[in-house]
């Protein structure tokens, strides 16, 4: 029983990391129609930049905030490369893969190939349902909930958020209304970068990251985003949690080596089910 609780807590925290990534995919895709496969790189940069700033003696909180801002700025640059030209969505997608590879090369040059980590939230492990839990797990869960809640409020309740929704819904009408659709696209990339950065800051104390950690993260984050058809942040959150928990359960009760494979198999089943459902709806219409 205590093992199950352990797997669930670890899985939910992993799930929120994936939810941050998936929400980044969704925010960017809704506004720009670009699937940003460089999303995992933001996590890596977030973690590595925090590590370097801490090494330079910058206080922890300041380092983490700066790392998130830097990830947002990197997102902005990726957005500029991807959407400011006149690329098709397919060409943009390939460009994001190129940016992910470039990011790995830069991360390897700057931070090397050794896994890096830093101390997270200090304090004694908490005793929950018969097991000891590192406070950092709870911080990851709590901070992710706060970040996703703030993002939801921004998108649903602010004028700029509604402008982003307008761009996602009807870019032509948005342009006619005077909204700068490209600027909104850049903003969405910055938000995607910041979400990844938050993920990197929160996960690196729990799981050391390397320059190529982005690939696995991007694939799983994309899988979670697909649950919401790349457009529904709520379903993407559910997808992230489902993948995170299922990965941990597979790793705990079966084998570490199979956890990603099982999560991806789950994604394929979900895609087939959604495709079947969509076909049924189209028949009705």
């Amino acid at each position: 029983m205590s093992a199950l609780v352990q797997y669930l807590i670890t899985g939910i925290s992993q799930g929120f990391l994936l939810a941050l990534l998936a929400t980044g995919f969704v925010v960017i895709y809704r506004v720009t129609k670009v699937v940003n496969f460089a999303q995992g790189a933001f996590v890596v940069f977030g973690g590595f930049i925090t590590y370097s700033l801490l090494g330079a003696g910058v206080p922890q909180g300041v380092s983490e905030v700066l790392a998130v801002l830097a990830s947002a700025a990197i997102g902005l640059v990726f957005g500029a490369v991807t959407i400011l030209g006149k690329m098709t969505p397919t060409a943009s997608l390939i460009t994001t893969i190129g940016l992910a590879i470039l990011s790995e090369a830069v991360a390897m040059l700057v931070w090397g190939t050794v896994p890096l980590t830093f101390s997270g939230l200090s304090g004694h492990d908490l005793h929950i349902a018969g097991i000891f839990v590192q406070p950092q797990y709870l911080l990851l869960i709590g901070a992710s909930i706060v970040v996703l809640l703030v993002l939801w409020l921004v998108l649903e309740r602010t004028y700029v958020g509604k402008g982003m929704t307008a761009c996602a819904s009807n870019p032509y009408a948005a342009r006619l209304s005077g909204i700068n659709v490209k600027a909104m696209g850049l903003l969405s990339f910055a938000i995607g970068g910041a979400l990844g950065g938050v993920g990197g800051v929160l996960i690196t104390p729990l799981f050391p990251i390397t320059y190529d950690s982005d690939v696995n993260l991007a694939i799983l984050g994309f899988a979670a985003a697909i649950v919401g058809w790349l457009t529904n942040p709520g379903l993407a959150l559910a997808g992230g949690l489902a993948f995170g928990v299922s990965e941990e359960l597979v790793a705990g009760y079966w084998s570490d080596a199979n956890q990603t494979a099982v999560a991806l198999a789950l994604m394929i089943v979900l895609l087939l089910w959604q495709s079947h459902r969509r076909q049924q709806v189209e028949k009705l219409v």
Partner: peptide, 10 residues
């Protein structure tokens, strides 16, 4: 615009 082109979900 032609066809109204509203933001249907808003």
């Amino acid at each position: 615009p032609e066809g109204r082109e509203l933001f249907p979900d808003l």
